[in-house]
Simulated scan of single mutants.
Amino acid sequence: MALTGLPGTAQAAPATTAMNGAWCNPAQGSFPSGGGFHAPRGGGLHLGQDISNPSGTPLYAAAAGTVIRRGVAVIGGRTGNGIVIQHAGGMFTYYGHLDAFRVALNARVAAGARIGDMGTTGNVTGPHVHFETHSGSLGNPVDPVPFMAARGVDLRGGWSRVNPGASGQRVRAIQHLLNQRRGAGLLVDGVYGSVSSGAMRAFQSANGLAADGQVGPQTWPVLVYSLRRGAGGSHVRALQTALNKRSAGLAVDGDFGGVTESALRTYQSGNRLVVDGLAGPVTWRALVG
């Protein structure tokens, strides 16, 4: 759906950056012991990173792309039901041990779109997702933890990092938050160009933060608001935008009413967060991860 923009100044085209807003966390959970890249596994090596949470926990596309494989044992024979997504630039991601599929083969998916549910299919000792990243070609796995970190994503669930030059839904949320915090009058276009990054540097300077324009673990907690039903304004638009990145399908109207509260509670419940209808720091961290 189209997001509601705000009047403001158009921005310069973004510069290239690895932390460009194109990638996001595929799952909430914890790292189990022995589930890291190149750990010994059954006479071979474990070629991904496991992330544990109960069966049914949502899995999200780590970046925009096309579902090129969907089924049983789509890579190897140990990881049960799986999905492979092909991304731009010769990148691929793989999600194994799914209990349910949420997308079809050959589907085009956006970053953050729900693609399946964490589960126990294949060779497992408990529910988790086996997550792989492949660079250059499918069959060339690289360690997902540093791969995703280089793109601003902490697989352990920490705050994301977004650099000037980024674009996308996460940037729209940042622009909405800056409009609420500073009355910046930014055009909410999803482009983190010179105008938005300048407004962010001014915000960081005013709040005693490093004025580098990066929205990361120091800036996000100061930028976001704790929001409940009844709130209204650009900060609610930011929340609705972040929920939409995770497939909520909300109207971005700045009204924290019953529909937005229901979407927030659904997200909290699915991702094993406290289901209180409060968009506080823990929920924001997961949403913008």
Results as ranks from 00 to 15, higher is better:
residue 281 P to K: 06
residue 119 G to T: 07
residue 159 W to A: 05
residue 116 G to P: 00
residue 192 Y to P: 08
residue 285 R to K: 10
residue 23 W to G: 03
residue 274 V to S: 08
residue 165 G to I: 03
residue 92 F to H: 04
residue 29 G to T: 05
residue 75 I to N: 12
residue 283 T to K: 01
residue 53 N to C: 11
residue 264 L to Y: 00
residue 36 G to K: 07
residue 101 F to C: 05
residue 72 V to G: 11
residue 262 S to K: 12
residue 188 V to T: 00
residue 249 G to W: 02
residue 33 S to D: 14
residue 273 L to W: 00
residue 241 T to R: 07
residue 148 M to T: 12
residue 43 G to Q: 02
residue 60 Y to A: 08
residue 243 L to E: 13
residue 75 I to A: 12
residue 167 S to P: 05
residue 28 Q to L: 11
residue 128 H to A: 07
residue 4 T to Y: 10
residue 196 S to A: 15
residue 191 V to K: 13
residue 178 L to A: 01
residue 272 R to E: 04
residue 44 G to K: 09
residue 87 H to R: 06
residue 266 T to F: 01
residue 184 A to T: 01
residue 10 A to N: 12
residue 274 V to N: 04
residue 11 Q to I: 06
residue 220 W to V: 02
residue 157 G to K: 05
residue 205 S to I: 00
residue 78 R to M: 10
residue 262 S to W: 04
residue 63 A to M: 03
residue 254 G to K: 01
residue 195 V to C: 10
residue 187 L to C: 08
residue 14 P to R: 03
residue 106 N to W: 13
residue 248 A to E: 01
residue 72 V to F: 15
residue 175 Q to N: 03
residue 91 M to L: 14
residue 236 V to N: 03
residue 257 G to D: 04
residue 149 A to F: 11
residue 36 G to M: 12
residue 77 G to L: 13
residue 46 H to D: 05
residue 223 L to M: 12
residue 285 R to P: 03
residue 138 L to N: 08
residue 116 G to K: 00
residue 97 H to V: 07
residue 107 A to H: 11
residue 196 S to M: 11
residue 82 G to T: 00
residue 19 M to P: 10
residue 78 R to F: 09
residue 277 G to R: 01
residue 126 G to W: 12
residue 15 A to K: 14
residue 75 I to E: 13
residue 148 M to Y: 13
residue 140 N to A: 13
residue 93 T to L: 00
residue 266 T to W: 02
residue 155 L to E: 12
residue 116 G to M: 09
residue 252 V to E: 07
residue 7 P to T: 03
residue 226 S to Q: 13
residue 2 A to F: 07
residue 196 S to V: 05
residue 87 H to A: 06
residue 147 F to H: 11
residue 109 V to M: 05
residue 228 R to D: 09
residue 23 W to F: 14
residue 129 V to S: 09
residue 63 A to Y: 03
residue 45 L to H: 12
residue 9 T to E: 09
residue 152 G to M: 07
residue 182 R to Q: 13
residue 263 A to V: 04
residue 101 F to L: 05
residue 232 G to A: 10
residue 234 S to Y: 08
residue 150 A to Q: 13
residue 111 A to H: 00
residue 87 H to S: 12
residue 265 R to T: 00
residue 258 G to Y: 13
residue 40 P to L: 06
residue 214 Q to W: 10
residue 207 N to L: 03
residue 248 A to H: 01
residue 208 G to P: 01
residue 178 L to V: 00
residue 209 L to K: 00
residue 161 R to S: 15
residue 118 M to C: 15
residue 65 G to T: 08
residue 109 V to W: 02
residue 175 Q to L: 03
residue 265 R to Y: 01
residue 115 I to S: 04
residue 121 T to L: 10
residue 198 G to K: 14
residue 41 R to H: 15
residue 75 I to W: 04
residue 111 A to P: 07
residue 21 G to C: 06
residue 276 D to G: 02
residue 191 V to D: 05
residue 269 S to A: 14
residue 59 L to T: 07
residue 88 A to E: 14
residue 122 G to T: 15
residue 166 A to G: 12
residue 246 R to F: 09
residue 115 I to L: 09
residue 29 G to K: 01
residue 157 G to A: 06
residue 156 R to A: 15
residue 40 P to K: 10
residue 222 V to D: 02
residue 180 Q to I: 06
residue 91 M to D: 06
residue 54 P to H: 15
residue 263 A to M: 09
residue 146 P to M: 07
residue 237 R to F: 09
residue 165 G to Y: 07
residue 262 S to Y: 04
residue 201 R to T: 15
